[in-house]
Amino acid sequence: MALEPHVIHALPKVALHDHLDGGVRPQTLLDIAAEVGHTLPAGDAESLGDWFFEAADSGTLVRYLETFDHTIAVMQRAEDLRRIAREFVEDQAADGVVYAEARWAPEQHLAGGLSLSEAVEAVRDGLAEGMIAASNAGQTIVARQIVSAMRQNDRGLEIAELAVAHRRDLVGGFDIAGPELGFPPERLGEAFRYLQRHNLPYTIHAGEADGLESIWQAVQLMRADRIGHGVRIIDDVEPGDHGEWRVGELAAYIRDRRIALEVCPTSNLQTGIAPTYAQHPFGVLDQLGFTLTVSCDNRLMSGTTLTEEFTHLSSAFGYGVDDLYRFTLNALDAAFLSGPERANLQRDVVDPAYMLVN
């Protein structure tokens, strides 16, 4: 039987793939847009939230990405980045998330005169404020920022250097984002080699809008620690004649080495990966032993929370508390957090809560 949302909400969860500019509160958008003179497509919070979901629910990644023009427009001042980062943490904590990574691309937030370092420091301050606010409310959450480079630009090495320079400013790792098709990971090879030399972990968006070649490059050429989305790995899995599955060499490599996939079910439906939750590759990949994690991608555009993502999966595949615990541990193990910090979260927060339910 599917788990009730209130049960899922109460359980500790881990969010690895959540874009800072994809989770802005509609009211915050309205507030800042009025101050900076940016015109939004709706004039009240409810209508604005509906507009974002409908615009993103188009079935194509290109149209989905267009919605970010509005959120990025209100994230050009230090005080706005700080506010949005603080609210990111508060909203995650309110949903029962105990560890969250906020990924964003500093190069997109310089129009107001900020330097790259000032932008990263503003997000750092917001995340820190959010963790304090959550703690004061009796909620445990640890937050980190993932600094992203836009794959269509030529600033990969510069942004990698930025991430390394600010690793003590709550920077957990690095990512590349933006249009995947036509901009393969190897374009930013110099950036990834720099990160390797400086021991900073990174994830790579791959296998969302492009297929197996993109995933292969991310894993075999760039040596990604995790894969953002990665669900197109299902293209390397075929049904056999007797109900079994044939797992291809790339898929087997990713499965056997437990390279975590950051799966975002609702976002995947919006961009055409699958027509329904029940037809999402998640069920087959889980059955075959892949290391799966669950995230929201963009809570504003997908009109979702991590509680809702797990609710959809529980309804589609019959997952229970033990399964949610397994996916949460997968995410915690893959988190860009120190080993002792991960162990402390599991021992002090995650395990006690799941033991109470069981």
Rank of each mutant, 00 (worst) to 15 (best):
R197V: 04
I215F: 01
D44L: 09
P26I: 11
F52A: 08
A143D: 08
G37Q: 09
V294K: 02
A85W: 05
D236M: 04
T60H: 13
V263C: 06
M355T: 12
E262N: 06
G96K: 04
A260H: 05
A73T: 07
Q287M: 04
Q92N: 14
I176L: 13
A128R: 14
S295A: 13
M75F: 09
A274C: 09
Q196A: 15
A56H: 00
A122G: 07
G248M: 07
V24D: 04
Y319D: 01
L306S: 03
D169S: 15
M131T: 12
L288Y: 01
I234G: 00
E129Y: 01
E180M: 13
G23Y: 03
L162R: 10
S338I: 04
L110S: 13
N344K: 15
E309Y: 01
L16D: 09
R77L: 02
Q108L: 15
L188E: 10
T39V: 15
V62I: 12
A73V: 06
A206L: 07
A15E: 15
Q76W: 07
L261H: 02
D210T: 07
A111S: 14
D256W: 01
S115G: 15
G243N: 00
T203D: 11
A224D: 00
F282Q: 07
E186L: 14
G189T: 11
A218C: 05
S295Q: 03
T203M: 10
S214C: 12
E262Y: 07
F174L: 11
C296T: 15
G243H: 01
P185T: 11
M131D: 03
E54D: 13
S267R: 05
F336P: 04
A100I: 09
V142S: 11
P275K: 14
R257Y: 10
L337Y: 09
P239E: 11
